[in-house]
């Protein structure tokens, strides 16, 4: 096998010392900004990886180097066994990318027409095109809007069409940049279910960036956190929680207004609303359990309803950043 042949074994993404700097004009002065700084990471075929970090941490720049859109300043990158910049067109046949904020559909044409053009671009034989389009239309429930021009779709409909467009050629690797941004709860849920099913059927590798902890929890078995261009964490999601000491929050709705629930063992009262009708308590799952905290609360007041909130992604990332800065 020649070195340019796409390999089907071995890691699907491999970077070493990957770095990208940009020139920023700051008034009249120019300065260099390092968007991705010495990133070394390996992703095996079949993994599902969440790539998270604050805005401007370098997530999108990384993705653009992995797919051959941007040329790295330093370091090496191999995707699907190919060099992304040199082999851009061959790599494009094996990767499907969705940028949540950019459309790859033909704005003025019906959705169906975009699929036809993309099928031609990817040189899909007629029967493969029909089967794959049918599968995606079915699973993403797009039949009702196939004949409508893209510009008239709702955001939820358009995102489904975008995902279908990126997956039409059944890529080995799917890269999603903020796929659920702006979607309502139901649309997010459907999209996640679709992605789980797609991976189960085709064994596709998934790399996604998101601000939504739900995306990571439901879709990813590995998390990479990037901070100012540098890799700050690489591991599973519970491990991230342990590293950052992620607290959970118990929210209780009470039958009657009550004083603040302080002095619950191993829990911390955060705040109260509506004269104490709703109260929020934080606890560390390593030191106590939700059941113990809840039991301690019910001993003191009558609880009408409760929820346990997961730490949100910004919170986890902020705490991870703070830990790194101090240690």
């Amino acid at each position: 096998m020649s070195p340019t042949e796409p390999s089907t074994s071995g890691p699907i993404i491999e970077t070493a010392g990957l770095t990208r700097t940009f020139t920023v004009r700051d008034g009249v002065r120019r300065r260099r900004l390092t968007a991705v700084d010495d990133l070394t990471v390996t992703i095996e075929a079949g993994e599902a990886v969440g790539y998270i970090g604050a805005n401007g941490a370098g997530k999108s720049t990384t993705i653009k180097m992995l797919t051959g859109i941007l040329v790295p300043t330093r370091g090496t990158v191999t995707t699907c066994g190919l060099r992304p910049v040199r082999d851009r067109r061959r790599l494009a046949r094996q990767v499907g990318v969705v940028f949540g904020q950019r459309s790859q559909l033909w704005w003025d044409l019906p959705v169906r027409e975009s699929f036809r053009i993309l099928a031609a671009i990817h040189d899909l034989p007629g029967d493969v095109e029909r089967a794959r389009t049918g599968e995606l239309v079915d699973r993403l429930e797009m039949a009702e809007f196939l004949a409508i021009p893209v510009r008239q779709l709702s955001l939820g409909q358009r995102m489904r069409a975008e995902i279908a467009a990126a997956l039409l050629h059944a890529p080995r690797l799917i890269i999603l940049d903020e796929p659920t941004i702006g979607l309502d709860v139901l649309s997010k849920q459907r999209l996640r279910e679709f992605l789980v099913a797609e991976r189960a059927t085709h064994g596709t590798t998934l790399l996604l960036t998101t601000h939504d902890m739900g995306d990571v929890e439901r879709l990813c078995d590995r998390v990479l956190v990037v901070d100012r261009g540098r890799l700050a964490y690489d591991g599973d999601l519970p491990g991230l929680g342990r590293t950052t000491g992620a607290e959970r929050v118990l929210v209780v709705d009470l039958v009657a207004p009550s004083p603040d629930l302080t002095a619950i063992p191993a829990a911390r009262h955060l705040d109260s609303e509506a004269h104490g009708l709703r109260q929020r308590l934080a606890f560390d799952p390593d030191l106590t359990t939700a059941a113990k905290v809840f039991a301690a609360v019910t001993e003191r007041v009558d609880v009408r309803d409760f929820t346990i909130a997961e730490p949100d992604i910004e919170d986890v990332v902020r705490r991870l950043y703070a830990r790194q800065a101090s240690g």
Binding site: I69, R89, R102, S103
Partner: peptide, 13 residues
């Protein structure tokens, strides 16, 4: 406006 990124994602010249 950066949409050109999508052009480079396609296996075409």
């Amino acid at each position: 406006d950066g949409r050109v990124a999508v052009d480079f994602l396609r296996p075409v010249d």
